[in-house]
Structures are given as structure tokens and as C-alpha cells.
Design a protein around this nucleic acid. Sequence first.
RNA 1: GCCCAAGUGGUGGAACAGGUAGACACAAGGGACUUAAAAUCCCUUGGACUUUCAAGUCCGUGCCGGUUCAAGUCCGGCCUUGGGCACCA
Length: 821
Amino acid sequence: MQEKEYKPKQIEKKWQDRWNQEKVFLSKRDKNRQKYYILEMFPYPSGRIHMGHVRNYSIGDVVARYKRMQGFNVFHPMGWDAFGLPAENAAIKHNIPPKKWTDDNIAYMKKQFKMLGYSYDWEREIATHTPEYYKWNQYVFIKMYEKGLAYKRKAPVNWCPTCNTVLANEQVENGLCWRCETQVTQRELEQWFFKITDYAEDLLSGHDILKEGWPERVIVMQKNWIGRSTGLVVNFKVADTGEDFPIFTTRPDTIYGVTFMVIAPEHPFLERVKDSKVKEFIKRIKEQSLVDRLSEEKEKEGIDTGIKIINPFNGDIVPLYVGNFVLMEYGTGAIMAVPAHDTRDFAFAKKYGIPIKLVIDNPSSPIDVASMKDAYVEDGICVNSGPFTGMTNKKAIEAISDYAEKEGIGYKKVNYRLKDWLISRQRYWGCPIPIVYCETCGAQPVPYDNLPVVLPTDVDFHGDSRSPLTMMPEFYETKCPHCGGKAKRETDTMDTFVDSSWYFAKFTSPRSKEIFDFDEVNYWTPVDQYIGGIEHACMHLLYARFFTMVLNDLGILKYREPFTRLLTQGMVIKDGAKMSKSKGNIVDPDDIIDKYGADTVRLFMLFAAPPEKDLDWSDKGVEGCYRFVNRVWRIVQKYSDCYTEYNFDTVVLDPVLKNLRGEIHRTVKAVTHDIENRMQFNTAIARMMELVNALYQINEEIIRTDAGKMVVSELFDKLLPMLGPFVPHLAEELWEVLGHKNFILDEPWPDFKEELTAKDEIEVVFQINGKIRSKRNVPADITKEEMEKVALEDDRIKEMIAGKTVRKVIVVPGKLVNIVI
RNA sequence: GCCCAAGUGGUGGAACAGGUAGACACAAGGGACUUAAAAUCCCUUGGACUUUCAAGUCCGUGCCGGUUCAAGUCCGGCCUUGGGCACCA
């Protein structure tokens, strides 16, 4: 028979067109079927897709297609995170309107997605830069404003001078802008915030639900980021005036050891300071950038203000220092310092000659203060601690806290590292914040009926990055919705992470008249499996959880966690580094698809590494996958004329065929397990390769017997559907070659017969003292006793145990016999 | 500094519940086919040693110890790499 050559371009186009014509990927609600919502993080339309996208979406597509074959009603949408800076930068540089740039990119990338054969329901497509989408951003914003969850306040904020905008805390990495790596500076600005701190506790407790389906490290990262700590606020007193001087501590057990206090340079309390040296110091520290203050890590600086503070527990009068290491934003902006039991306070006290007072002693070797080299931070017994002396310090934490509350000198408090989410951006290409400022009524939300506040698209950038909105009276000049008087629109736009915080739910009803079509959203969401990069652990994944909780509290969504299961895939790297333009190690998906076809690229992405690990790009590895695809192609073509009906009930297979049939069922079992329980696609593919290799090993004459034809037919019936999720076009084409008229993607996932997965004969090993000394094939159903007998009768074993005492014989059924002598 | 991962052949990676380390693939080498090459198909391939050529012995999963009949896998300590947090009181 004349074999056809494998031409991926032809067959891939052919099947993409057919899927499209038959609308096979459109999703419909069906109360009688279990839904499965699989979602990959939607991309920013940067221009063209990169290998990281290919990996992310190939993993998602395998899951989508696999679940579909398992009988689930699969929901698999795709869209565009379309607002953001690159569009503006392109506009400034090349004089292309951001909307056009974005739309063109979307069109191109969509074409690329289609070339890769992903099973998306494109009728659910959304793009966040469309008014029909961002209208609902504005809607939620106003809902949050009404609940006090969106508010404006003047605060020191992170400013990126390159991006010309403020940044949220989560978007500053080591003092650098997450996007352009410029040093972030501090500015005092009036900005819009979302009160995510109100949800700190919910975000933490939700982790208990998520630990089933989320990688532990993501949960740990979020926990660290939220940074919950429990402690006590203690009201110290200012000696001169008697005012309260509150501090926060997690170590109330050390309160009798306080020998000085430290306050943040930004603290308003310091306005009273007259001393010029102190004022100068404060000024100098305030002028340091965040980066500078962080970079001189170990160097703690301070100056005595001359102000005295009274410890309410023991009446000690201690000096108040200004210190560069105390943060205004955390706790109360001031701390009590216990040099004996805090390494940082110890270093500071040594530097400035402040006394050290021991209040917790080491029970096993008493501490001599004079010879202390560092703070004692271990547990111990309280000393010099008034009524608490003699207690273990652990007990004292509770006792002292209770005492403080009882005496009215303090209260227990939980503090978080998490800060409110700053969402204002001084940029153009984003969702307008739906607020107007009236000269008489102040800030007013835009009424719901007037939404959306449409972002004008015909804009002039005047060659720089300042938002054109600030120069467009036709945009910002408006009337107050309350009094009808003259008013000015907010010209800041929202952080694009707002757009992506709820998009997963909008996919269910992209063009609904309300925020959602509730039949749709209630049927499909939450997302059953979410897939994306780990870099979003403390940004997108935290914001989306927050939004879901808010929408739940607003009665809009019925659940509090948006993503039941999460898979964080690794990066695609080449020559040891992440693919990037600056490193010049980019491999363009278009080129690879052109050379080998989409099926090969997809296969390689799944085969080269398990999904969570980084994947090392290798041109040779891709060729290996191409070779496998061709091997499948050839062998199916070769034996397509053997494809027949089969019934094994009355057939006795010779050992070669029987073993091959066993191999078929073992492969189905293993592949199913690897996908279902482990999401380990690389080993699933390896198993299918083994099955194909096994078929190649068998003599053509044997296959062309009646029994052989039946086995090879069963093999194709199992193998091709399993290949479907990985190499969908190839699978469809070969399915058709075998005479099928239906889509292979609609075939049920292959099943296997457990009894056929067992081998007749298995190899067991005989060990002496744990070392392998002999091997033997034995019947698979051998008993423990028989195994032991066979082992002891083995010639080599006999030889080696001759004259020795057998102390113990361990038999592991089906595996080994270990003889201890 | 604290927290979390991960260290396995020349390479990417297997080994799922403590039970034959190195599946599958790449690279390398050999053979078949071919006038030849490519492609394809088949074989070999962790290291060292012994060798009567059938095999056998020893070593080997970052390092040092431990538990166990048996450890890549469990425990303790360390080293290295990657990631997160970091004057958080």
C-alpha cells in the first residue's frame, strides 16, 4: 500500500476548519451533565504569542480535551487582558492609537491560537478594553465605593518615574518597578484604594479550602504576603505631657526589659521637635529613597529626641529615639525596644550606649548581661518582671496581655503586612474611574445609568507619557450628578489587575445586559482548574480572590473562592535563561509551527518536562517529538487495512499478541492515571511512545493474521483517542483514515480491563542481605510461599547461602525475595 | 536572617505507598536498507574492574551520619542552586 506522507500544515488546517464549521467547541449549559470549567490565565495582547503562552495553553488544552472525552460538559474560554502600558508606549513611539495597536495584536494572536488547534469557545471571547466589559469594572467600583471598600486618601505611594504612574505594593519588587525595573520613589498623593485589608482574615482562612487543590508554595507565598501577626498595643505615656504613646509588640513578655523607644521619622508626633540636630536627622532620612533606606540593610541609625517615655508596667522612664528602621505604615509607627531580647534593638543599644536589661533568663545556663554578645531570643524564664517573674515567657505573653487589657493600658491586636490595594494609575490606556468631582458636592460616583464612562480612543499623546485625558476638556468637563453644577471627571484609570480580577466569571456571559447572566455564571463558575504562572501568586491570584469575596458579599456570586484547583506551570527557558528579547534566546512559535506543525510543538511542550517545572527548550528534543508523530502516522497508515471489528471472546492469542494486548490495557491504565491523578503529561506521553515501540517490534506476518488484526485494531482504538488531547489534528486525521466519520474528540476516553493489565509472567529478583544476586521469571499468580521456595532453590542462591545460617526471609509479592544470612 | 522548593547518566527527565535506580526521549556509537546521502528500521550506551565471552564483582541518586531485611524515597546535620519574605517590632 502506498503510504501518504505526513504533511502537518495540510491536515492541521483541514481539521481546524472542520471544528470551526461544526462549532464543536461551543459550550452549552446542560443541567444533566457535570460541568468542568478549565481556564488558563488570559494573555496581554503584546503582539505575538511566545513559547510561555504555548506551554500554558497546551497544558490547558490537554485537560480540556481530556475532560471532554471523560464526559464532562467542558467550558474553555479565551480572551484578552487588553489594557496596559505597552499599548501606550507603542502609541507614543510609533504614533499608533492604543486601541488600534491592541486590536491588531488581538487579531494576530487569535490567528496563532487557532493555528495551534486549541479548543476554545470563541463565542465567549472577551477583551477588557471594550466598553461592554469595563462598564462592569466601573459598576463594581461604585458598589465597592458605596460599601466603603473603595476610598480615596492621601498617602505616601510608590511612584515609577519611567511609567509615570503610581504602583501597588505588590507591583514593587525589591524597590524596583515590576514592569520596567526602574527605582521606585515615594510620593505623597491622593489616590484611590480598595480595602483589601478588610479581607485579610478571609483571604487567610480561605487557604484551608484551597490547600486541596492549590500548590502549597502559592499558599505559603500569599500567607507571607498577608503577614498576620498577633500582639499587643500598649499605651506608654509621654513623661512631660501625659499623652498616650501607643506601640505594637508581639513580645509583651519582654515589656519589663524596655530601655528605650524608637519612632519612625515620618511620624506626626515629631512635629513638636525643636532641636535642630534632630530635625536635620529626620529631614535626611526622609529624603532617602526607599531603595537607599533598604539597601543599607544592617546600618541602623537613630538620634535621641530628648523626649522621655514612661513604661506603664514598671514606671521606668526611657528615652525616645528617631530611627530609620521603624516603619510609619506598620503597627503604630513607634516601637518599644528591648535590647536584651531582640537582635536589632541589641545592635542599636550597643551603638548608642543604651543600657540592656535582662528579663528572660536561659534556664539551663544563666545569662550575664555584661558579657552578652547578642540578644537572647530563645524561650526562658521571666526575671526582673514584677509579678510575672518566675513564669515561662510563653505563659507571660498571655498573662501580660490579659493584665494590660484588664488595667486599660493596652489591648490585643492583630496586624497585617498586607496594605490596601492602590488602584489609581496616572495613565491613559485603562478603565476610567467612574467618579466626578463637584466644586460643591465633592467626589460623586457616576450614576449606574450613566455607565460606562467611555474612554476616548482618538487621543493625542503630545509625544510623552502623560495621560491625554488630563488634556481633554471634552472628557473631563462634566456636570455633577448630584447638584448639576460644574464638575470634573477623575482622569486616573484603574490598575489593569482590576480588569483581570473577575474576568473568569464574565466569560460565562460576555454580552449580558446585567453584570452576568446569572443562569450562566451560576452554572459554570467557579473555575475547576486554573493554569498560569507562579509570578501571579501575590498579585492577580490574591486580587481575584479578594474580588470574588467582595462579589459574594454583594450577593452577585455564590462562592468565595474563584479557582478550585490551580496549576502553576514553569517557565520556558533556553540556554539556562528565561526566553527574552534582551537575552536574544527567543524561539518564535510561528517558526516552529511552520517547520513541524502545531501537533509537534504541543507534544514537545508537554513531553519535555512535568508542567510545574521549568522547561528547557531543545531544538533536538522537538525533532524527537516530530519523529514520534511520524512513527504514529506511518504505523497507522501501514496497518490501516488491518483495521477490523473484533471480539476476543472466542480467540486464543499467541503469547506475542497476548502480551501486546496486555500492553494496550496497561498503557491506557497508566496514561489515565498520569493525567487524572498527577497531571504528569510527560510520563503519559512516554507510555504511549512505549506502546508504539511495542507495535513496531512485532513482526508484520503476526499482525496480518486474523488475531493480529484484532489486536492492532484494538490498539488503534485505544491509542488514537488517547493521543487526541495531545496531538489533536493527527489523531483526527488518522481516525478518518481508519474509516471513522465522527470527530475523535467526541470519542469517550478509552477504558481498560484490569484483568488484562496483569502479566502472565513477572520477573522477580532474589536478594541476599539486600543485594540482588539472581533474577527469575515466575508466574504472576505465584504465592508468597512458592516464591520463597523458588528463591531458595535457585542455583546461585543455593551456592551463596551454602554453609550460612538463614536468619530471615522477606518476600514482597510480585517483586522480590530478600534472604538475610 | 526566616520560610518554601530542588539537587539522579554526556543532556531533558523516569522511579506513584521504603522494594530491580536511570522508563521515555535527546546526544553518541554500531548494523541493515541505498550506487551514495538523507530519511527509515534494528542493536549498544552510568562508571570501574574480572573475564573461561557465559557472565560476574564492586561503586554509584549533592555531602556526612542514622533508622530498616531493604533508602533516590524516611529521620538528623550540613553544602549548593532556585524562589518567596525581609529593618513587620
